[in-house]
């Protein structure tokens, strides 16, 4: 059941990324490029995605997931160096290539050799992340 639900969710997510144009790096960079020919599409995608999710979160109150167990705990509140530095590093890469993890996966079959190299680099970065994170923790403690 969990596997079936995951597949349905993935199909919706991949279809949404494709239809919205978010696998087109020009549209993503067009939104980030406030000094160029600004493209508002990404704001509509974000807004559109937040609407069903908002209602879904409301619906979780006092209920349990379909497969049983519990819904995620209330969000953590601490704003630490990992959240800020990690997001800045992610944003730098996102701006450079116009790809974030979801669209990179969705477009893997039609993004050419560049898409494959991006994916391999991203996975390598993910593999290195625990060590980089520990380095950041040491720097933060020393500071």
């Amino acid at each position: 059941m969990r596997i079936f639900i995951s597949l349905i969710s993935g199909l919706l997510f991949g279809g949404g990324l494709f239809i919205s144009g978010m696998t087109d790096t020009a549209k993503v960079q067009g939104w980030l490029d406030v000094f160029g020919n600004w493209d508002p599409t990404l704001a509509f995608v974000m807004g559109g995605a937040i609407i069903p999710m908002f209602f879904a979160w409301q619906f979780t109150k006092g209920r349990h997931p379909l497969v049983g167990g519990d819904f995620p705990a209330p969000p953590r509140t601490e704003i630490d160096h990992r959240l800020v530095i990690g997001s800045v590093l992610f944003g730098m890469g996102w701006g450079l290539a116009g790809l974030c993890p979801g669209p990179a996966i969705a477009s893997i079959t039609y993004n050419g050799m560049g898409g494959v190299i991006f994916m391999v680099s991203m996975l390598a970065g993910m593999l290195a992340a625990p060590a980089v994170g520990r380095g950041l923790d040491r720097a933060a403690t020393a500071a």
Partner: peptide, 27 residues
């Protein structure tokens, strides 16, 4: 483009809702 962005966004959010309400996890 913005209409397709909105429609695609709604699909993305629905995918997230299915994942959350079904599996109890964050997509």
């Amino acid at each position: 483009d913005w209409i397709w962005g909105l429609v695609g966004g709604l699909l993305i959010g629905t995918g997230g809702a299915v994942y959350l309400l079904g599996n109890g996890r964050i997509m």
